[in-house]
Amino acid sequence: MSLVVKNITKCFSDFAALNDVSFQAEPGEFLALLGPSGSGKTTLLRLLAGLDQPDTGSVEFDGADYLKLSARDRRIGMVFQSYALFRHMTVAQNIAFGLNVRPAKERPSKAEIAATVQRLLKLIQLEDLGKRYPSQLSGGQRQRVALARALAISPRMLLLDEPFGALDALVRKDLRRWLRKIHDETGVTTIFVTHDQEEALDLADRVVVLKDGQIEQIGKPLELYRHPQSAFVFEFLGTSNEVPATVSDGVASFDGFTAPAVSPKALSGAQTVRFRPFDAQLSPTGPGFEAKVLSLLPAGSSLRLELQTPDGKVFETQHAHESEASDLKLGDTVFVRPSKVYVF
């Protein structure tokens, strides 16, 4: 186990930004820290980097007590959301910084440093831009320089705070593939913060879901998606529709029809159940919830519908292009029937 975080609590005056947070990371693991704004992601990352101290709890890395080490001695590469590049240094000088500030005894020779810089410039695909200043780079290029600068110190662990937050959707998608590739090549334990569930599920070996300073669930992306432990996780990972139902023995009963109910706990009685857009079937006659077609939009390989029930509730459903949904028009009346629901 390379990183072991136990019972971390951090308060700002009397507001608990982190409350009893514990998790572990295997050597070489790629971990995502997922949570809405203000859930404590940055706070946690800063504690790991040694930029802040927790009120209680422990942080161990390879058996060593990291809370006793200063940020300087932890050798943890951190990539800030704002990049935090040194503006008066060229790209190459930025990358070399961590090596240049080492004590004379540990510092590599000038030639070795230059070679490392070249290797990293190649890795981030900016070989020709070593002499540029950060102000002469695009956002995505700055992001990569910040990453190279952190990698230059051969970090024991890499922390990235919303690394693609400021970039547009297309660049994000490609950069995150590339980040994964770099991780797989260097094999350094990596924790990255995001509030984008798609990014977390797409990229990470495991995802830690944070809410209000507490861990809601930890798991592999598929596990998290298939077996969410709470309504929060279910809703955070994708679109969710809510309906009331009566639950017993893993079956949810509605007005005239039933659906299998998945639940982390053995719940029964009147409950609010949730279903995903693609766990819904449409039929012209029922049984199901009567609804009018509010909008009909292509969403990539499928068709997305918004349906409004007579009492004003709106469902979002998703169907194959070639299905019973493809013939519908705006204003048509259909019956929605969930094929699988979740209960928390």
Binding site: A49, G98, A150
Partner: peptide, 13 residues
């Protein structure tokens, strides 16, 4: 920017 300073710290300065 305080983060620039913190970046220098994490890099071992």
């Amino acid at each position: 920017d305080a983060e620039v300073e913190e970046a220098a710290q994490t890099l071992g300065a």
